[in-house]
């Protein structure tokens, strides 16, 4: 896939980092403000998609990136599951138990394991939306190649 014009590339260069940071902000403040893992993850994936669309990429790169994002996706959700399972061996021994100290309401480091879930879910969602995008793009590349 070819990239776009210089103007688009330069603008993307300026914006993509900010979009990425905003996504991270939404993810880590998930337990305090509306938003969280899913919304933030979509924004983070958006920054990557912006870069790929503006700069273009060739077939080899895309497949390699898809492998990477698939692994990240599965790793994220596996870690979230591990945290949930860890609840079964600590505290009152229940699946999905919030086993970390809860802290005070309104602080960034509070609410026990919920920020951790948000981070891993954000990782999972970002990677999976990127994977969907890459898979559709690879489909398209395959068609134009033939």
């Amino acid at each position: 896939m070819k990239g776009m014009t210089l103007i688009v590339k330069k603008t993307t260069q300026l914006i993509a980092g900010i979009v990425f940071l905003y996504g991270i902000y939404i993810i880590v403040h998930g337990h305090l403000t509306p938003g969280g893992g899913f919304a933030g993850g979509v924004i983070v994936a958006g920054s990557f998609i912006l870069l790929i669309l503006a700069y273009g990429s060739d077939f080899m790169h895309l497949t390699r990136e898809e492998t990477g994002s698939t692994i990240t996706e599965n790793l994220g959700i596996l870690l979230a599951l591990m945290i949930a399972l860890a609840g079964m061996i600590t505290g009152i021994k229940v699946f999905f138990f919030n086993w970390l100290p809860h802290g005070t309401v309104g602080e960034l480091v509070s609410a026990g394991v919920i920020p951790l879930y948000n981070i891993f879910v954000g990782m999972e969602v970002a990677a999976s939306i990127l994977t969907i995008f890459l898979a559709l793009l690879i489909f398209k590349e395959e068609v134009t190649k033939w």
Partner: peptide, 13 residues
């Protein structure tokens, strides 16, 4: 529920 989910993700990784 947890074991087959973990199995699925481990397989993919």
């Amino acid at each position: 529920v947890a074991v087959p989910l973990a199995g699925a993700f481990l397989t993919m990784i």
